[in-house]
């Protein structure tokens, strides 16, 4: 059984290929047995979040066909990982292999920390960085404790990034407010969506960030779209790109 089936979400494949490649290199660099099944496309999240379950179901079924055979499925997207883990039940419950798929699909940082057991990231990333905690990774996968909850704090993303040499992680006034992407929400509610995005960017700016780091390119695409329209000097970066050059152990 190949250990890892690499799941590169459709929009990352088409629009952010460098993020996919960085993920591939990180996993390979750890000496892991990774495969990228070429018949994969989309997990169905855009359809499911629009309420179009009938359009999402065949994609969920396909996903199980394509990825059911791997020990683990890893993806550089909290949102897509959550789709498989938390929202496939309605279509796939009881299907052979689904329980395994559901409990073995991981977002990249989660996988590194929880499954591979990475505790050290030896690399460089000079600059002031604000972390954007995308909501689905935060509140559905629990990659960190959300600010609403009062149990013991933890943060799997910060834990990795904080170790890079030269990085200064800035403190935001609202540590995990939504950026307003939200899939079709970004279009259907564009006025509110863009105001949310601009407010997030302003928070990062006030905190002195030069780079907004995140683990979901979809949120970063929305934020970057606003940043570029306004000609701001801020950059966005996916954690995979930031960790690509580091030695993880």
């Amino acid at each position: 059984m190949t250990q890892i089936g690499l799941f590169i979400p459709c929009y990352v494949d088409q629009l952010y290929p460098r993020v996919g490649l960085a993920t591939w290199r990180i996993l390979r660099g750890l000496g892991l047995d990774v495969e990228y099944p070429k018949s994969q496309t989309c997990c169905g999240q855009p359809m499911a979040n629009s309420g179009c379950g009938d359009a999402a179901r065949p994609l969920a079924e396909r996903f199980l066909d394509v990825f059911g055979k791997y020990k683990h499925v890893v993806t550089p997207s909290g949102s897509c990982a959550s789709m498989v883990r938390n929202h496939y039940d309605q279509w796939l419950a009881g299907k052979p292999g689904f329980d395994h798929l559901k409990s073995n699909t991981f977002e990249l940082c989660e996988y590194l920390v929880d499954i591979v057991g990475v505790t050290r990231a030896d690399g460089d990333f000079p600059g002031r960085v604000g972390i954007h905690m995308s909501c689905h990774g935060l509140r559905e996968l629990r990659m960190a404790r959300s600010s609403e909850r009062m149990d013991a704090p933890f943060d799997k993303v910060r834990g990795l990034l904080a170790q890079l040499r030269g990085i200064e992680l800035v403190t935001l006034s609202r540590p995990d407010e939504c950026c307003g992407f939200g899939g079709t929400f970004a279009v259907a509610e564009q006025a509110v969506s863009c105001m949310m995005g601009r407010d997030r960017i302003a928070d990062h700016e006030r905190a002195g960030a030069q780079v907004i780091a995140g683990f979901d390119m979809s949120c970063l695409m929305h934020l970057e779209g606003l940043i570029r329209r306004e000609g701001k000097p801020l950059k966005v970066a996916h954690v995979a790109e930031m960790l690509e050059g580091a030695r993880l152990s």
Binding site: V19, C194, G225
Partner: peptide, 19 residues
């Protein structure tokens, strides 16, 4: 989308191509 935001730049190659 484009009322207030830029579209992402289109890369010439997909991840599959790079891989």
């Amino acid at each position: 989308w484009g009322l207030q935001r830029e579209l992402p730049p289109m890369p010439s190659e997909s991840f599959r191509d790079l891989l």
